[in-house]
Design a protein around this nucleic acid. Structure first.
Lengths: 337, 337
DNA sequence: AGAGACGATTGGAACGTTCCAATCTAAAGA
DNA sequence: TCTTTAGATTGGAACGTTCCAATCGTCTCT
């Protein structure tokens, strides 16, 4: 009884059984580097022997030797993982699921990394020798810079600060929302914007909101941008004539908050107030009434992120630097506008 | 320019810099197997050199050599990952998050595994040489048996078929729900049960429901067990006198379905109908009205699962065979019963 | 002072791949 | 027939740890 791996079948056992060298077996099982080929007959013999012995490649040994783990790390920000409200966690979970799916399709594993509750953990990321990192809307620019500095390929998804950012078409989505609401006849549309302080997605959506209002000839004075739930409560408390009749929220969670506030104020949705969210998250399927929302094409974002990551890993940085956004798909849900 | 890992600082570089052998450095950085100790002065020198050179242990190499990856795999069942309704996915995500947190606390990494859409993938699990597996409510007994057969330590969480199962106190939870409803004066309580076919949690909760009804002296004929949404719709369509006035659902998702059906039937909740869910998932926080639900203590389950897994890995199977359940915490949410 | 014990340190052999350079074979061209 | 060439196969050196057995001091006890 020896070391960790138990007494498993190795490449050498297969080689002996098939009457070839271990290198040949390796050639059969690994993607043939360069122009190396294996004769059909030999390959068959090796495969047969491997099957008979129930050989399974030791992925850890392979990773050690090649330096490729075929594993990527996903880093969710504190405020998504540990948000006081579990509702706010859903975005992080959606990102994780989307990345997970995309990674599976690209034949990669995903490993979760320790929550970055303290600085020194940054180094832990690279210890695992992952092939790359996906950062989901981290908010701390210094942290992001530190991670880029480790040299591990990394891609930000949603929002970010570095050169490799995948994001949905925020302006376009905001424009769709405004167009939808304007199409319903609304002239007083408020935007409950996301956090300030250089938060990419929040800024882009607010920008998109502003220019869409202009496009639709709405009076800017009647289309306020609201920063906090308090602002929203105040706006919805105004007399009928001054009150916004529609709110475009930064995301579905904030939209859900708007619904709560509307309920408190005795406003009926969609009767007295229309609400549009962003993300098309599970939250939008659970609120009553269900939310009209802008799909953030998270699946497409994840695919793009994985593709970019792989190209970074393989040294062939994609031509397009801050890869442009996947399209933004509008969805129409239950509210009977 | 050589192989994968780039030209990083190794244990050998540190040894040279500190003027000791690599074994000493290894002793400093690895948990000192057996009684091996390192002198304080030597340790200091090594640590200092490591810091100066910015040495980081290569986790892959360590895993390769020791056979310990310090990583566990989490396997979510198809029906949770790919459920048509995203609402039904939330349970799987909650399990994942809970396990993730528990693993972090135990200083373990979590890796996601390929979805088991086809049989051969079972072998993939062991290729990664994970220290153990956590299976979340898999439904296919043959699959579970096959996984146990690989020899990799594994623990089922929620529901399962094998010897290592962590589960909430299903009977107790059902009893709490019935007690709560009976306490509100309900005499006709229906149970919208989970899937049949040996599904552990569903059977236990239905059992607990039955015996709790008996305990509270309820007429079994008036406390039907409903299998499908169709059954629920039918029961809620009965005339006032025959209709159940309360439903205890298998989980929050099914409870949410009950809310939908009640709305269709024009029943007001909680006015005409009381609904209690199970899990205390995010779903129960998003429905209107918010759901009274039974907390499944997922965090405690995950902790127990990790603990059991580690003890299995280290060969010291816990005394208690099918580890008993963590307590079941009832929560009272928004509906104003 | 010598024996024994024990703690600290060390060298070297694993671990199972990947990757490279070298060799071997057979077919094609002269 | 003798080269040349390209493809197929091979041996061996990495990769950076862990783990074990052996060695080296130092201290204690007789």
């Amino acid at each position: 009884m020896q070391r960790g791996s138990g007494n498993r079948v190795t490449i050498l056992d297969v080689a002996r059984a098939a009457g070839v060298s271990k290198s040949t077996v390796a050639n059969v099982f690994s993607g043939l580097p360069g122009g190396v080929t294996v004769q059909e007959e030999t390959r068959r013999r090796v495969l047969e022997a491997a099957q008979r012995l129930d050989y399974r490649k030791n992925a850890v040994a392979a990773a050690f030797s090649s330096g490729r783990t075929h594993t990527i790390g996903v880093l969710l920000p504190q405020h998504h993982v540990l948000a006081t409200s579990r509702v706010y966690r859903t975005y992080g979970q959606d990102v994780f699921v989307a990345v997970f799916d995309a990674a599976c399709r690209a034949n990669l594993r995903v490993t979760s990394l320790p929550n970055l509750d303290r600085e020194p953990r940054v180094a832990d990321l690279t210890d695992r020798r992952v092939d790359g990192l996906i950062l989901a809307s981290l908010r701390d620019p210094d942290l992001v810079r530190a991670i880029y500095a480790t040299g591990t390929p990394c891609v930000e998804i949603g929002s970010g600060f570095g050169p490799h950012l995948i994001h949905p078409d925020n302006e376009g989505g905001a424009a769709l929302a405004v167009a939808h609401l304007a199409g319903l006849g609304h002239r007083r549309i408020a935007h409950f914007r996301g956090p300030r302080g250089g938060f990419y997605a929040a800024d882009r959506r607010a920008e998109g909101f502003g220019s869409a209002c202009r496009t639709h000839g709405l009076d800017p004075g009647r289309c306020p941008v609201l920063d906090t739930p308090g602002d929203v409560a105040e706006a919805l408390g105004l007399p009928r004539g001054d009150r916004p009749t529609a709110v475009f929220a930064f995301n579905d969670c904030q939209a859900s908050d708007v619904l709560d506030i509307a309920e408190e104020r005795g406003l009926r949705v969609p009767g007295d107030l229309s609400v549009v969210g962003f993300d098309n998250s599970v939250v939008s399927e659970l609120t009553r009434p269900r939310l009209t929302t802008i799909d953030n094409a998270l699946g497409a974002q994840a695919d793009a992120a994985i593709a970019l990551l792989l190209s970074l890993r393989d040294g062939s940085e994609l031509p397009e630097p801050p890869a442009p956004a996947p399209v933004c798909v509008p969805t129409h849900l239950v509210p009977r506008h």
